[in-house]
Amino acid sequence: MMEKLRLATLWFDGCSGCHMSLLDTDERLLELTAFLDIVYSPLVDVKEFPDKVDITCVEGAISSPEDERMLVRVRNSSRLLVALGDCAVTGNIPAMRNIEGAPAMLRSIYTSGNGLQPQIPALDLPALNDKALPLHRFVPVDLFIPGCPPGADTLFTALTALIHGNTGHIALPTCFGA
């Protein structure tokens, strides 16, 4: 039996919907795990991103310097990088803040309401980049899977293709917003 491919999944600035879609493959997950080892994921309990990964699926846009550092680290350790879902592909909903930039977004969230002491929490918030951007603005991406979220079938088709070494153009039944 061939050696299993090492799969990692990450979750940056997104809603985790794409990970839910992955879980929605239901019993087909077992088919996938016949070929894949999940070596890092919000779904498993590994703290450090491993050095050698075959396929890394990234959900979410890149929104902070921390996201950016992690993405570069992940790219360097992964053979194939997959942008999973619209946030990773286009920026999607997190990118709606790009119109005004991060500071304006924080102001409108924390200070425009009727709170007792409206203020932007200084200590507990991670530093934000001005814009939330898709992965390919930072690193090369090998496969884009648009959709919000891409359906379970789409993810299954894509992963199956990757497992079978198909890294060329993969026709997927999905689109922006699907």
Partner: peptide
């Protein structure tokens, strides 16, 4: 070339 400084 490692993209670390490449900010859009």
């Amino acid at each position: 070339q490692n993209h670390e400084e490449v900010r859009p």
